[in-house]
Design a protein around this nucleic acid. Structure first.
Length: 679
DNA sequence: GTGCCGCTAAACAGAC
DNA sequence: GGTCTGTTTAGCGGCA
């Protein structure tokens, strides 16, 4: 009767439940588990999980197909056996079905959508079960409702025929109209409830709709509903829209929602669901209130009108003036099914965008919280790079952000990132590999930071209160080298710090003291009396002399660097996955000038490249073949400039980097006047 | 254990 | 007198 769709399966379950069990067996026991593997590794584990996820997806998809088949068969059997509504008139089997019924497909969620769900999320068996049950219930209820609607249509047609023969019967006509209104109201309720259902799916992460894509046809949701529930639902759906209009003083011409919320239920339904009875003149009863307000405040300004074109979604009709636009709006976009549907689509688009925004905000908050919360955690194992941890361990840092973000306890078992974020997020595991190292690797490895390092991560450091993993000396040098004349006053150095790093917008006394201390302490910084006072320059010879031999023959450091690359890689992957998940094509790869974490990771890689080169050049037994960096990223060999002229190498990077299209925004920022109000 | 290094804090002096 | 700038010293922690 049934045949398993799995290619490797030869089982032919005889019943639905048996097939479900069989399918679940596929999902629960992937092939990789059935065949013992001689070598266990992370890679095989990932493959195993992938196979399992794929099996689960196949399982639920197959199960849904089977459920649909069953329901269709039941429907056919009902039609054959005459199990129909007793009031149903079977004389007219092929009745004209209006558009709203055409939307009532038995599939509450289309296969494409289901596939979309399955491709995006790995569902737990409980979720699968709930989804299946919901799907079945919805389909059954929709069938019942569809039959009911057909019955109503038939009755209406019959009565109309009778009226044609026997003359008008106002009472009956009114009754029929009332019934149809009630039914249409129910249809509306179904649509709204289905929207809510889909929204809840989205919130649960089970369904993702691309912004701007009306991926969800307006399929009504046939579920038993309570009027109060419906009202609450309607308010919930419309409140965001109304609030948006209010907040942005952006008065939409579609006052459907507002009217509905503020009106009583009967008027609402009559207004919405009887568009032909209530013409646009009725719209002018409600809408003009707001439109007139809007037009009084902003004459001839309308959210749906701009540049002589109607901005109604999918319209773009040319309207020479505002009056013609209004005329066009009232004529072409009257309150009918099409406009209502378009309005709902737009609402969904807006809601989806809001969801996306909220999601990204939550993600940002989690990231920021995570970066700050580490100070409350016990010191972790040896950590490769002092990327973010130094901020948490230094005393000033803890003082720097006393208010700070909520110190949500973060443990590896309780990631902050939402569950619905998808498979690839910056997990606490990957982030926790960063730990307390006070040394700034740039100095420690005697690899001067290049402006590219800072420029690539400029956006990150500008916005995140993360201590840059560079020594004061390196930063001061960088600030001076970035200046046109390669010299800066102390105040200009201060400004560079605050401009480039959000971290240095706090505790000015502390780090300014440190800057002065470093300027005085290190011989590489030369004070030059100038016309406008004293300026500081960099003596590259002295700077390169500082600790010329470092990290040579340090296996632990090499280990750290390797593990640090292990940190970089998931960071990049997570970023890319996050971007891809959010459908941000511009940042699909970290190598495309991503100004944030991707470049941060790449900059770290570059630093580590330099360090590794240094290490490999000084130590022969450092097992370069084991270096993951060399395996993944081609090492660009760059000799450490010993000649002061060659030492200007990073300086040339300044020019090239800043003139690269990728860093145009950096240039803009540098051109900005110094913001003294930062502190 | 020792020395080096980086960071922080503080004291002090001179200039504005 | 207050602020800014520059110098110096001391202490601490991390690391080799």
């Amino acid at each position: 009767m049934f045949q398993c769709a799995f290619s490797s399966s030869v089982l032919q379950p005889h019943s639905t439940s048996c097939l479900f069990k069989h399918l679940f067996y596929h999902s629960a026991t992937p092939a990789s588990q059935k065949q013992p593997e001689p070598i266990y590794s992370k890679k095989t584990e990932i493959q195993r999980q992938t196979v399992r996820a794929h099996s689960v997806k196949l399982f639920i998809f197959s199960a849904l197909q089977v459920a649909r088949q069953l329901l269709l068969q039941q429907q056919q059997q009902q039609q054959v056996s005459g199990l129909k509504s007793p009031k149903r008139n079977d004389k007219q089997p092929a009745l004209q079905v209006p558009v709203s019924v055409a939307m009532m497909t038995p599939q509450v969620i289309t296969p494409q959508q289901m596939q979309q769900i399955l491709q995006q999320q790995v569902l737990s068996p409980q979720q699968l079960q709930v989804l299946l049950q919901q799907q079945q219930a919805l389909m059954l209820q929709q069938q019942q409702l569809q039959e009911f609607y057909k019955k109503q249509q038939e009755q209406l047609q019959l009565q109309l025929l009778q009226q044609q023969h026997a003359g008008k019967q106002p009472k009956e006509q009114q009754q029929v109209a009332t019934q149809q209104l009630a039914f249409q109201q129910q249809l509306l309720q179904m649509q709204q409830l289905q929207q809510q259902h889909l929204l809840s799916l989205q919130r649960q992460g089970l369904l993702t709709i691309q912004p701007g894509q009306p991926a969800l046809p307006l399929q009504p949701l046939a579920q038993g509903m309570i009027p109060t529930e419906l009202q609450q639902l309607w308010k919930e759906v419309t409140s965001a829209h109304s609030a948006e209009e209010t907040a942005g003083s952006n008065h939409s011409s579609l006052d459907l929602t507002t009217t509905c919320v503020s009106s009583s239920a009967p008027s609402k339904t009559s207004l919405i669901m009887n568009p032909h009875a209530s013409t646009n003149g009725q719209l002018s009863v409600h809408t003009p209130k707001r439109e007139s307000l809007s037009h009084e405040e902003h004459p001839h300004s309308h959210p749906l009108y701009g540049h002589g074109v109607c901005k109604w979604p999918g319209c773009e009709a040319v309207c020479e003036d505002f009056q013609s636009f209004l005329k066009h709006l009232n004529s072409e976009h009257a309150l009918d099914d099409r406009s209502t549907a378009q309005c709902r689509v737009q609402m969904q688009v807006v809601q989806q965008l809001e969801l996306q925004l909220a999601k990204d905000k939550e993600r940002l908050q989690a990231m920021m919280t995570h970066l700050h919360v580490k100070s409350t955690e016990p010191k972790a194992a040896p950590q490769p790079l002092n990327l973010v941890s130094s901020v948490t361990l230094s005393k000033s840092a803890s003082e720097a952000s006393p208010q700070s973000l909520p110190h949500t306890p973060t443990t590896p078992t309780a990631p902050i990132t939402p569950v619905t974020q998808g498979p690839s997020v910056i997990t606490t595991t990957s982030m926790h590999t960063v730990g307390p190292i006070r040394r700034r690797y740039s100095d420690k490895y005697n690899v001067p930071i290049s402006s590219a390092d800072i420029a690539q991560n400029q956006e990150f450091y500008k916005n995140a209160e993360v201590r840059p993993p560079f020594t004061y000396a390196s930063l001061i040098r960088q600030a001076i080298l970035e200046s046109p004349e390669k010299q800066l006053t102390l105040n200009e150095i201060y400004n560079w710090f605050t401009r480039m790093f959000a971290y240095f917008r706090r505790n000015a006394a502390t780090w300014k003291n440190a800057v002065r201390h470093n300027l005085s302490l290190h011989k590489c910084f030369v004070r030059v009396e100038n016309v406008k006072g004293a300026v500081w320059t960099v003596d590259e010879v002295e700077f390169q002399k500082r600790r010329p031999q470092k990290i040579s023959g340090n296996p632990s450091l090499i280990k750290n660097m390797q593990s640090s690359h292990a940190y970089c890689t998931p960071l990049n992957a997570a970023l890319q996955a996050s971007m891809a998940e959010n459908s941000i094509p511009l940042y699909t790869t970290a190598s495309m000038g991503n100004p944030t974490l991707g470049n941060l990771a790449s900059a770290i890689r570059e630093e580590l490249n330099g360090a590794m080169e240094h290490t490999n050049s000084n130590e022969s037994d450092s097992s370069p073949g084991r270096s993951p960096m060399q395996a993944v990223h081609p090492v660009h060999v760059k000799e450490e400039p010993l000649d002061p002229e060659e030492a200007e190498g990073p300086l040339s990077l300044v020019t090239t980097a800043n003139h690269s299209p990728d860093f145009d925004h950096d240039r803009d920022y540098e051109d900005e006047p110094v913001n003294e109000d930062m502190e």
